[in-house]
Amino acid sequence: MRSIWKGAISFGLVTIPVKLYSATEQKDVTFHQVHRKDGGRVRYKRVCTVDGEEVPYSDIAKGYELGTGEVVVLTDEDFEGLPLSTSRRIDVLQFAPADQIDPIYFAKSYYLEPDAQGAKPYVLLRDALESSGQVAVVKVALRQRESLATLRVRNGIFVLETMLWPDEIRTPDFPFLEEDIEVRAQELKMAESLITTMESDFDPSEYHDTYREALQEVIEAKVAGKEVVAAREEEEEGPAVDLMAALRASVEAAKKEREGAPAKQKKAGGKSKDEDRTASKRKTRKSA
């Protein structure tokens, strides 16, 4: 990984030099726009709407359009004069329980690595934060944009998660929220039963991007000169007319799928999650 930012965590009078890395990457199949006839790349020119001339990148500035249609042109010097007090600092503002922060605020995740002589204060703050069970609420400026963020510990590393500002979260204003929709007790009980039946520990490795894998196969088949056969699309069922019947059928289907899962894992040479939990309990009792 390559660091994209260098700065310091400012924690009281303690300064911890750190390097910042993107913690995630988008796995996607990328495409170019091409001419269907000969596969040639399609390029776009930056053309001024006033004089019709192509504009070199060095002559492009940022413009803010007013309600009247007029444009205020801002230069690099205008941005340099703005007060970004956190331009090279991650300022710790407070500590708070993680469950008080709604995940809707989170934007992007980054890893923080101690830089230079920062390893000891880094580990000190990391261990203290982890034992407290809280997260640090901080302020940081990345790419000329100041954001709130949280600092938490994951696998021994600080994870910085930038956050949206409160006025960037939209208020849901949907008509059904004002409707008096009656849910019968039997329906609620059946829905809760379905949730219980489908409950299990979350393991992200069990899931994968089937669309991207299928798309990659199509591309590989094209390269190999094979005929690409489209997969048969399953018909989507419409909304359930009898809600109770649909819930009951869903519970039964979930039970059957769950009963078949341990058999599949054993066939593959693995253990079911229930067996892992039982083994773990046995180890705990022996050590006691």
Rank of each mutant, 00 (worst) to 15 (best):
A128I: 13
R277A: 13
K266S: 07
A231E: 07
P17D: 11
R126P: 07
Q117G: 12
R258P: 01
P175A: 09
Q144C: 09
K283C: 01
L112Q: 07
A254I: 01
A23H: 14
E70M: 03
A61T: 00
L112T: 10
D167P: 04
T210L: 13
A61C: 10
A230M: 12
A254C: 04
K120Q: 07
T68C: 04
A98D: 14
H32K: 04
L142P: 08
V14C: 14
K255F: 00
D99A: 10
G67K: 11
E25R: 09
G12E: 10
T150M: 07
P175R: 05
P114V: 06
I4W: 03
P114T: 02
D180I: 02
S287L: 12
S109H: 10
V153A: 03
S3T: 04
S131Y: 12
V71H: 00
V72W: 11
S193W: 09
F176T: 05
D76S: 15
A116E: 11
P175F: 11
I104Y: 01
G39I: 12
Y122D: 04
E65K: 11
E220F: 01
S3Y: 13
E53C: 00
K256W: 02
Q94R: 13
E257F: 09
G156R: 00
V137R: 08
R143L: 10
Q117F: 05
D180F: 00
A128Y: 09
L125E: 02
G270H: 15
Y21G: 09
V138D: 03
K62H: 14
L93R: 15
K45H: 08
L177A: 06
H32F: 09
L20C: 10
A214F: 11
